[in-house]
Design a protein around this nucleic acid. Sequence first.
RNA 1: GGCGGCAUAGCCAAGAGGCUAAGGCGACGGUCUGCAAAACCGUUAUCCCCGGUUCGAGUCCGGGUGCCGCCUCCA
Length: 532
Amino acid sequence: MTEPVRPQIHLHDTLTGAKTPLETLEPGRCGVYCCGPTVYGLTHLGNLRAAVVPDVMVRFLRQQGLDVKYVRNITDIDDKIIKRSAEEGMPAQDLADKYAEEYHRDLADMNMLEPDVEPRVSGHLAEIVDLVGRLVNKGLAYAVDGDVYYRVKEFASYGKLSKRTLEEMLEGAGSRIEVDERKETPLDFALWKAAKPGEPAWESPWGPGRPGWHIECSAMSSTHLGQTFDIHTGGRDLIFPHHENEIAQSQGAHGDGTFARYWVHNGFINFDGEKMSKSLGNFFTTREITALYDPETVRYFLLTVHYRSGLNFELEVPCPACGAVLLKAAQEAGRCPACGAEHDDEALKRSVRFPGLEEAEDRLAYVYGTLAQARTFLDSAKRPGADEPPLEHTAGLLESFTGHMANDFNTGGALGALSKPLNEVNGLLAGGKGVSKPVRWATLSSFAADMGQVASILGCFDQEPAAWLARRRDAKAKRIGLDTGRVDELLVARRAARQAKDWGEADRLRDELTTLGVAVQDGPQGSTWDFL
RNA sequence: GGCGGCAUAGCCAAGAGGCUAAGGCGACGGUCUGCAAAACCGUUAUCCCCGGUUCGAGUCCGGGUGCCGCCUCCA
């Protein structure tokens, strides 16, 4: 294994809009706060991306030797939860607990680290009330009829994160949202909301009520990371108003220069170029995707693009009856123009294909296949007496990979850096003429060891290769409706034909396999197969 | 309307002012193979347009054009 590589880490900070060197508050330590989900439904791909970005960041920072404290909250008191609980006839807290559990399940499937602390709003009412009181005492907030609002115009730098001024925002406000007459300024936002009859409520100096949407993150981050900490992450859409308001609350209470030192925001997920959005109804839950694809495939796919960019999911919707690709209009009409069959959204969602995920899965299979072969070689070959350095690309793998990761967690570039070593190793495994045994051994063992490092940073490629390949085969066979028993029969028959050198019959059997969607691979150790 | 972001090959996508502009998919040619497949090797871009700064710009600045997002719940 190569020596650890420790380049200077740079990250893009939303506040300054620039890439800057990461200098933590305390040398060697790093506090990370991730805005977790409001738990009122199953997680969707957007939640996944918002989770995998800090996940890889934390993994990398730790691999670089930093002592990271990773805090990711769960918002379990919220208007949307209350609304949903009324719809489902389930107490709000039970509903929140249920979906928090589902969230954990999805993230565990995705091989996400558990945070060191996962605070919930319901466990931090005292801290929240305390913080609101502090803002009221400082004149930064005012109470009206049991509500408490933040006095936005008293916070001089309001708008600095979203790069807007108060004036600009006031111009737009009012035209789009109903203005609450009791607020001093339309932009003032709720820190505390008085309870209406039947709503969950907690006691406070302003009467029974619940926290507003933004205050919980200010309270929980300072509780678990201190008034000032290093990195705050979340989706781009949280910049305004959520994070802007967090800054106003936290710095209002604790002073300028406190709170998050770096802001990291991930881009959106799009479907066919359109923003995934609950209100547009074009969102997929994690479960809907993992019913079709391996979670690691999804994780890998999320990492193929830089986290700040948008990530597009191409969709292909075949007619469940005849397989004809349905265009948007046909999808919406719920009727196949080719065969006339009618389908509801659920049926279409079950048959949908994601070309991007399929490509990701194939790539993963390539990497695992390489890893499996390298493993087989190392297990069977004897370690040579002489020590030689590995081949060039493999020798440089970790340095190149780490360099990309240190450059604002560029997973796309980092993944690209694996290609040359992968080619080199496969070349060796396929023949490697002219390469001495010691060099071959050194290269393969260096590759295997360094890929272990890569795997621990990405949270990909870290499964047993043979097992992963077997599971992928089963899952894909199921997805495309392949009868693997039939494949095995044909393979046996073909082996006999090949042994008899009956090439005509062997080719006929191969054609039959091809129509099933199977590609045969003949090798020295017999024939294997893969998907076309 | 205000503000922000993006524009790199057929498609996707890295490029933190300076060697021949990563990588993936696809396509084409080759090695291997009974023929294939897989794997490997090779080919496939001067970076939306115009102007500027600089010894030097895909990278910085200004002006266009075109997409996208935020300004309302959203990851």
